[in-house]
Design a protein around this nucleic acid. Structure first.
Length: 824
RNA sequence: GCGGAGGUGGUGGAAUGGCAGACACGCAGGCUUCAGAAGCCUGUGCCGCAAGGCAUGAGGGUUCAACUCCCUCCCUCCGCACCA
């Protein structure tokens, strides 16, 4: 018979709710702890990834609670987004109805896991109470020029009929539906995240408790690189062609330059030249290609000669100007200097079109695969030859400057600095930083999102909706056909508006916001979820923020976290809060795998949490998922493992119900004092492991403790402490046993036990004896034995005779209370 | 290519310079049972009858002592990339 988990879990979920055990109210003078897990998109079903994420968070929340912290542990729903629209089309319902149904179902599933959320603080981003403040924040950004419209070529997903941020294009496809992305010109709303690029980079240094890999990923994403903008000149007109490079050390090896086909100088440059016709044809052809095709690695790089030449300012050499598709207008200046000897793309292009190459960095590393040819080349260079036909690839590594005028002989890293300074002095270049980060495209041609609060007036132009008119509500009714763009466009009552300034008939913006906007500040809303005067109450935010511990999937390591950091800095500039970073400590949990693959519908390897709860109960599911792997690593789902967790709980249940003791040759009964010692050691281990999110070893310690009790007996203090130590992991189970042992108050109001250091002191210790680093014997000695006495005991150990005979000890290493090593 | 994380029994994992394999799963044998389930006990890295030897991706180094530190290489996973 197993313990009655079903009744126990249902009962306690109900009682915790009724008694508001997890309600968080600010209280001066008590330390706060804000624990947040990334809120889910309400797809309707929770999956094992959710279970893992929220179980990890719940253990931490309950642990902190029992340590005396006032814990804020909220939950909500990231409820806007495209799946609701697709579901509406498919099921002939409305996104609103579908989403709320999903939320209700999902909330129930979360409650069945017994998570300690303060449900009174629940928010859903699709409720106008919430998205009103999206609009308010947008308007504040608009007023400051941080939200702006820009006509540009955007990524267009033909299946979703929507634009995608560059960040949302994955492998040339839509990040959601994976359709190939096309290019389209549209007027779009952008947020100027680049205005915060320096802060976003700099403040990463404050995030001491973030995983290093996330910091590295953010850093790469922001992508600051130091380089030089070099001023080439068009030979005939003398017009300046700025070129950006981070490899100014290779400037003397520039044998041609390349402009993007869209470069503004191209048309002027080719006018009347024999190449004009061919170049125009090429430009027309490239304009048909999407950025994705142009970016593909396996596609051959194409280009044409423009007929013009540029003057390299460092040596006044005239080099040909080419037009090629591998240079994009969006990056840098839309023009590059090509150094085929030291850049692989330039190398391939030069080979293809028979352009010259010149070595200017000579490799010093003889083991480098490309060195053989390069060494030869270096020699031939010195011998005055210029042929480079032996080369099979560009050399992009470090080396010594050659063929570089006054910089010859310098290591290239040193030359980089010197050349940059020299160019600034001679006014032929300017030291510049280049950033990878671009502004954030937030417009979506969709219905199920926050309407952008803007009105287009034929007289006044782009006009902000006044704060008093917020929220701009989404109309409940709209045609969902899945075709022809945004359904909002077709709702006349919505589109028709009056200009707030001059009252003439005007047109309302029908684009909605990307859902990343909604999730960029929800952690602030949780501090005062019902506040009606602003997105959040400054005082509540001052009390609760920043989030002490944030937990979520690694897939959000860049976008969501970067946008949230950006919003936080924006609010700080508005004076709405006073800290730089929203999340003090971050944990990224690993994925849940089955048979080595990520669980997914398409693989058909999903294990439904529901079925596990039915069969074993939520506590067993929680225990297994915590025990099977450390939180950060991938977790391999194992149906048999869950049996093990269930067995353990039943074992503890029997132990506490019947005070049962079994003994055996291996498990000699320990006296009560020894069991107490084990208890104190367990308290220490579990507490320290919980602080460090090492749940798997914390549970292992508890299993050992249970094994000890099982064979030795116990008293009430031992059992109560065992139950408390178990409670963050298996809350219903522990609460039930706690109350059965006569406690009226919830176990989560109990204080976390402290261990007595005096109880950890051992009177006797086992010393491992090694000879030449190999274990040969062990002896038990008093913990406070003197070094000399120990040495005497060790050297007279019979077991060591065979190893010490004829071999006088040369050295005697002693590690107190642990080990001796005799070197012979 | 760049950045990051990894590689330990049949499996998940433990050990951050000091007894490699804690704690579990699985497997084998036993007790109990009419039988099964549950429970309980014992064993379980590899070779070897044993003494002992060998083992943490491979190879080298530092050390009295290396899964742990250093060097070289191999492999797996994740993220990013015509970013000039």
């Amino acid at each position: 018979m197993h313990y009655p988990f079903k009744e126990i879990e249902e009962n306690w979920q109900k009682l915790w709710q009724e008694k508001a055990v997890f309600k968080a109210a600010a209280e001066e003078g008590r330390p706060k702890y804000y624990l947040l897990e990334m809120f889910p998109y309400p797809s309707g079903k929770i999956h094992m990834g959710h279970v893992r994420n929220y179980t990890i968070g719940d253990v931490a929340a309950r642990f902190k609670m029992m340590q005396g912290f006032l814990v804020l542990h909220p939950m909500g729903f990231d409820a806007f987004g495209q799946p609701a629209e697709n579901a509406a089309i498919k099921n002939k319902t409305k996104p609103d109805i579908w989403t709320h149904k999903c939320i209700a179902w999902m909330r129930q599933e979360l409650q069945r896991m017994g998570f300690s959320y303060d449900w009174e603080r629940e928010v859903s981003t699709c409720d106008s109470d919430y998205y009103k403040w999206n609009q308010w924040i947008f308007l504040r950004m608009f007023e400051r020029g941080l939200a702006y419209k820009k006509a540009s070529s955007v990524n267009w997903c033909p299946a979703c009929e929507t634009t995608l941020a560059n960040e949302e294009v994955v492998d040339g496809g839509c990040w959601r539906c994976h359709s190939p992305v096309q290019q389209k010109d549209l007027e779009q709303w952008y947020l100027k995240i680049t205005a915060y690029k320096d802060k976003l980079l700099e403040d990463l240094g404050q995030l001491k408790d973030w995983p290093e890999r996330v910091i590295a990923m953010q850093k790469n994403w922001i992508g600051k690189s130091q380089g030089v903008e070099i001023y080439f000149k068009e030979k005939q007109s003398g017009e300046i062609i700025p070129v950006f490079t981070t490899r100014q050390d290779t400037i003397f090896g520039a044998t041609y330059i390349v402009l993007a086909p869209e470069h503004p100088m191209v048309l002027e440059m080719i006018k009347g030249k024999p190449q004009e016709k061919e170049v125009l044809k090429f430009i027309a052809k490239v304009s048909q290609e999407s950025k994705v095709v142009r970016a593909a690695e396996d596609v051959k790089k194409e280009g044409v000669f423009s007929g013009s030449y540029a003057i390299n300012p460092v040596n006044n050499e005239a080099v040909p100007i080419w037009i090629a598709d591998y240079v994009l207008m969006e990056y840098g200046t839309g023009a590059i200097m090509a150094v085929p000897a030291h850049d692989q793309r330039d190398f391939l292009f030069a080979k293809e079109h028979g352009l010259p190459m010149r070595i200017v960095i000579q490799s010093q590393v003889t083991s480098h695969p490309s060195t053989a040819s390069l060494d030869k080349l270096g020699t031939s260079l010195r011998a005055g030859k210029s042929q480079v036909e032996d080369m099979t690839e560009a050399y992009e590594g470090d080396g010594i400057q050659v063929n570089s005028s006054q910089f010859n002989g310098l290591p290239n890293q040193e030359a980089k600095l010197k050349i940059a300074q020299w160019m600034e002095e001679k006014d032929i270049g300017k030291i510049q930083a280049h950033w990878r980060l671009r502004d954030w495209l937030i417009s979506r041609q969709r219905y199920w999102g926050t309407p952008i609060p803007i009105i287009y007036c034929p007289k006044c132009g782009i006009v902000a909706v006044p704060d008093a008119d917020l929220p701009v509500e989404l109309p409940k009714e709209a045609p969902f056909t899945g075709e022809g763009g945004s359904p909002l466009n077709k709702v006349k009552e919505f589109v028709q508006a009056k200009c707030p300034k001059c009252k003439t008939a005007a047109r309302r913006e029908t684009d909605t916001m990307a859902t990343f906007f909604d999730s960029s500040w929800y952690f602030l809303r949780f501090c005062s979820p019902k506040f009606s005067k602003a997105p959040f109450d400054k005082l509540e935010v001052k009390y609760w923020m920043p989030v002490d511990q944030y937990i979520g999937g690694i897939e959000h390591a860049i976008l969501h976290l970067l946008y949230s950091r950006f919003f936080n800095k924006f609010f700080k500039d508005l004076g709405m809060l006073d800290f730089d970073e929203p999340f003090s400590r971050l944990l990224t949990q690993g994925m849940v795998l089955k048979d080595g693959d990520v669980m997914s519908k398409s693989r058909g390897n999903i294990v439904d949490p529901d079925s596990i709860i039915k069969k074993y109960g939520a506590d067993t599911l929680r225990l297994f998922i915590l025990f099977a792997a450390p939180p950060e690593t991938e977790l391999e789902w194992d149906d048999r493992g869950i049996d093990g967790a269930f067995k353990f709980l039943n074992r503890v249940w029997r132990l506490i119900q019947s005070h049962h003791v079994t003994t055996s040759p291996r498990h000699q009964p320990q006296d009560l004092n020894t069991v107490k010692k084990k208890m104190h050691a367990t308290i220490k281990e579990v507490t320290e492991d919980l602080e460090n999110f090492k749940f798997n070893t914390a549970i292992a310690s508890l299993m050992e403790f249970v094994n000890t009790i099982y064979h030795s007996g116990q008293d009430e203090e031992i059992l109560l402490n065992l139950i408390i130590l178990l409670s963050p992991f298996v809350p219903h189970f522990s609460e039930e046993l706690w109350q059965r042992l006569g406690n009226a108050e919830s176990i989560f109001r109990a204080r976390w036990p402290k261990y007595d250091p005096a109880m950890l002191a051992e009177e006797k210790v086992t010393i491992v004896i090694q000879v030449n680093g190999k274990v040969r014997s062990k002896i038990e000695v008093p913990a406070d034995i003197s070094e000399d006495r120990l040495k005497g005991l060790v050297l007279s150990d019979e077991k060591l005779k065979p190893w010490l005979q004829n071999n006088p000890p040369k050295n005697f290493i002693l590690v107190p209370k642990k080990l001796v090593n005799i070197v012979v």
